[in-house]
Design a protein around this nucleic acid. Structure first.
Lengths: 347, 347
DNA sequence: GAGAGCTAGGCGAACGTTCGCCTAAATACT
DNA sequence: AGTATTTAGGCGAACGTTCGCCTAGCTCTC
């Protein structure tokens, strides 16, 4: 450690006991103005900073939060996570905590690793992102009885743990509603497969919006796959090959890159994206600017999610017992309307 | 803290003093096999894990490394950093350390913030990335006399601090050499402005390679800007507008998105990228797959850099005094040859 | 068979805090 | 004026380790 000025050093200089210094600095005691001034001056002159380790030992809390996320190769490119990471660090700092990185690599020693981290007092709790359908981290951490808050949910049934998530269903509802407003009636949906919680959730948003509008849904309009660009490209071609009466004039997708594929397919067929066929994405991925037209998409409020996750976790640390509605939070994505869904001219 | 099994609990169960348990577990003492077995059994049965905080206090080291990086909005999109982050976490774990996130936001309280972190014993040292031309963090941390290792350099003169960096100069040399092999003679360079350390470094690689080949360089072939796609696009048009005798047949760039812009421009002119005009990038950014042809580029060895950064830092913690060549490490990027620089047919 | 040398393990102290209890002096009250 | 109450600050203990020194008992040697 670079600095070794301790309470005792300050105390000696200020002419009081070191315990008194401790209390003065934390306003846990009444002292005469002179003593307070002497203490403060000594602190300044010596450059005293309380030793966090000693404090942690005494207080039995590390003020450290473990952040477990999935490595980039194992998931879609998602700049959202970078923003989320920034956000949790920011919020943690604000509340007197720090974030400890703890990547999630699957394996048989999962329990051991977390047990180690928890029992050794390294961290006070965890933040998880990239939740899987049936995430193995949840039961492990549950068993260790350590506070955690997740960014995302597992499959709907078992959401016993606290989480903050983006309301994909509401997002897709917004997107569909926007397309309806533009005059579209036949709207297709490109989503992720059945075993994807997120995919299923978003699909139900589509159903709800179509149902609310009283519009029929042709089963051919719904396509699901784990692909990205290629899937969007192929699926759009298939959709646009449908006979005129059944051919969709708008395509809602669950991921920007799927949307990009669809846009390319449409453009290849000489269609103008926006007027002829509308396309929407999800995530607001920073895309190369030559991708014209601008893509209408749903921006994930990653910053807000991060702030809330940390705030909730800190409340749990403090022994609060938040109400159900505070333990399971959904925040809506924001619809960003660009040219890819504007200027519809039915033909 | 979730677990409160301490040395004393283990000792009681094993029938020895707690200090002995401590020593047995760290092999710092000779004991009879029976005692060792009793201790080990007690540890297992109680699920004992040494308390890191107490150990840190005693040993005066937190085994925590602060990682200071720049937020995504303030820099180019660089998936490299994600890989780097993964890598340092991995290496740190391997060596018994953890990574603490500590984003770098400029401001007048820079010194205070770092002083706080260091003097309070929160971290043992720092890893910095996204170094700026004249990075303010360096003098601050220097003054605090805290070990640090950087990913990247500041301007060439003042490299007093330990760093590991990618050898952009050598990278560009490789790219140019490859193009020469393909039969190109007139090679252009699109780079970053004068005040960019990285840009200047890479430009010198270009000069060196051209000089080594004994080829003249037309000043018009060198263009510098802080732009990305747009710069590449516009610059390529300018270059390809040159009279035939001076027109380059290959374009080396310092960034993938610049290369993409150049590719687009070439394609717009009806040129076939690869055969007619070769283009190379830098970073091996995961690009949307419809970007054909595949881009020849220089892959940054972010993983290796991360490993080395941590290893070096840990050596510094241990009081080692590495030789000059170990304190300032350059690793070469790897040339990934794809279609954008293959099949040259001079015309 | 007594002193020297080993060996196994005990013991006190320290790392730098925070917390609760204690006490001497000052003030208030009847 | 004598007692009760408040006030300012001291003091011991504890959080869970690690480290160095100490010692009781054994083994060896001549």
């Amino acid at each position: 450690m670079a600095n070794n000025v301790t309470l005792k050093d300050v105390a000696r200089r200020a002419g009081v006991s070191y315990q008194t210094v401790s209390k003065v600095l934390r306003n846990q005691i009444q002292v005469t103005p002179e003593v307070r001034a002497r203490v403060q001056q000594a602190v300044e002159e010596l450059g005293y900073r309380p030793n966090i380790t000693a404090r942690s030992l005494r207080l039995q809390t590390s003020h450290l939060i473990g952040y477990s996320w999935k490595s980039a190769h194992e998931r879609f490119v998602a700049p959202i996570l970078e923003e989320f990471e920034q956000s949790i660090v920011n919020a943690a700092e604000r509340l007197g905590y720090h974030i400890l990185l703890f990547p999630y690599h699957q394996g048989p020693d999962l329990y051991r690793t977390y047990e180690e981290l928890v029992y050794s007092g390294r961290v006070d709790g965890f933040i998880l992102s990239d939740l899987e359908f049936d995430d193995p981290r949840i039961p492990v951490l549950d068993r260790l009885e350590v506070p955690l808050v997740a960014f995302g949910r597992t499959h709907s049934g078992s959401a016993t743990f606290p989480y903050v998530d983006v309301d994909g269903r509401a997002g897709i509802r917004q997107a569909v509603a926007h397309l309806l407003e533009q005059g579209h009636q036949r709207i297709a949906f490109l989503g992720w497969p059945e075993h994807s919680r997120v995919g299923t959730d978003r699909l139900s948003g589509y159903w709800e919006a179509m149902e609310a509008a009283g519009l029929p849904v042709d089963p051919a309009w719904i396509m699901r796959s784990s692909g990205q660009y290629d899937f969007g490209y192929a699926a759009a071609h298939t959709l646009l090959d449908l006979p005129a009466q059944r051919r969709p004039s708008a395509i809602v997708t669950v991921y920007d890159l799927i949307a990009v594929g669809a846009v390319q397919a449409a453009q290849e067929r000489g269609l103008q994206v926006g007027p002829d066929v509308a396309v929407t994405g999800f995530d607001d991925t920073p895309l190369p600017p030559y991708l014209l037209p601008g893509l209408t998409t749903l921006r994930q409020p990653a910053w807000e999610v991060g702030q809330r996750v940390v705030e909730l976790l800190v409340r749990l640390f403090q022994g609060d017992e938040p109400a159900e509605s505070e333990l399971h939070v959904l925040v809506s994505p924001e619809l960003v309307i660009r040219d890819s869904s504007r200027g519809h001219r039915p033909r």
